[in-house]
Simulated assay, not measured.
Amino acid sequence: MNDLHTFGLRVISINGVFYDGRAKCIILPCIDGERAIQANHEEMWVAIYAGIIKIQKPDDTWIECVCGYGSIQVANNRCTVISDTIEKPEDIDLKRAQEALEIAKEKVRQKNSIAEYRLSQAAMARALSRLKAGSKINLH
């Protein structure tokens, strides 16, 4: 594989390294939608939100993971993704994710402080991302 079309990618969370190697593309969940990073992308530092990360490996296969909140840094044809949580779709417990979603929905409905409301919204977003990714795997 020609390194001109790839970049160094490292995807990590507090639980360890999810991916460390070359990649053609990574698609990340950001506040304004998905953002794709490819080789020789401009330098930047961006926040990421709970959602699904898609990685295109040099052999053109794709892998996915569910991430929590974090950030990405792109510099010198390298991308580092740091997230509070990263899960493989096949490791997601759909029943537990559905229960977490119901709890978060109930907390959003309650009259709480702005901070509690935002935490509940974040929990809802994470649960929905986990259900979406986990359902794809479990339907096959």
Score class of each variant (00 low, 15 high):
residue 124 M to A: 06
residue 88 K to G: 07
residue 37 I to E: 10
residue 100 A to W: 12
residue 111 K to A: 15
residue 119 L to T: 05
residue 129 S to P: 07
residue 116 E to A: 13
residue 128 L to H: 03
residue 44 M to F: 09
residue 122 A to L: 14
residue 80 T to A: 08
residue 130 R to F: 10
residue 117 Y to W: 09
residue 100 A to K: 07
residue 123 A to S: 11
residue 62 W to M: 07
residue 46 V to E: 11
residue 48 I to W: 02
residue 81 V to G: 08
residue 126 R to N: 09
residue 50 A to L: 01
residue 107 K to N: 15
residue 76 N to Q: 11
residue 127 A to S: 15
residue 75 A to D: 11
residue 61 T to M: 05
residue 102 E to C: 01
residue 124 M to C: 06
residue 51 G to V: 01
residue 109 R to G: 15
residue 41 H to D: 05
residue 85 T to G: 09
residue 27 I to R: 13
residue 39 A to H: 04
residue 45 W to M: 06
residue 128 L to N: 06
residue 65 C to S: 11
residue 120 S to G: 15
residue 82 I to H: 09
residue 87 E to G: 03
residue 101 L to E: 14
residue 105 K to R: 13
residue 112 N to L: 13
residue 114 I to G: 02
residue 102 E to H: 10
residue 116 E to Y: 07
residue 116 E to W: 05
residue 32 D to W: 07
residue 113 S to E: 08
residue 27 I to P: 09
residue 59 D to M: 03
residue 57 K to C: 04
residue 92 I to E: 10
residue 108 V to R: 14
residue 33 G to C: 06
residue 48 I to H: 00
residue 65 C to L: 05
residue 45 W to D: 01
residue 78 R to C: 12
residue 117 Y to K: 11
residue 26 I to G: 13
residue 40 N to I: 00
residue 39 A to C: 05
residue 34 E to T: 03
residue 53 I to M: 06
residue 75 A to E: 09
residue 125 A to N: 14
residue 35 R to N: 10
residue 29 P to Q: 14
residue 117 Y to M: 12
residue 52 I to A: 00
residue 84 D to F: 08
residue 64 E to G: 01
residue 29 P to M: 13
residue 90 E to C: 07
residue 106 E to T: 12
residue 35 R to C: 11
residue 82 I to A: 14
residue 108 V to P: 11
residue 57 K to P: 07
residue 79 C to S: 07
residue 108 V to I: 15
residue 42 E to S: 14
residue 113 S to C: 07
residue 34 E to N: 12
residue 47 A to Y: 01
residue 77 N to I: 06
residue 95 K to E: 15
residue 87 E to D: 15
residue 123 A to C: 05
residue 98 Q to C: 04
residue 55 I to M: 02
residue 73 Q to V: 05
residue 55 I to N: 02
residue 115 A to P: 03
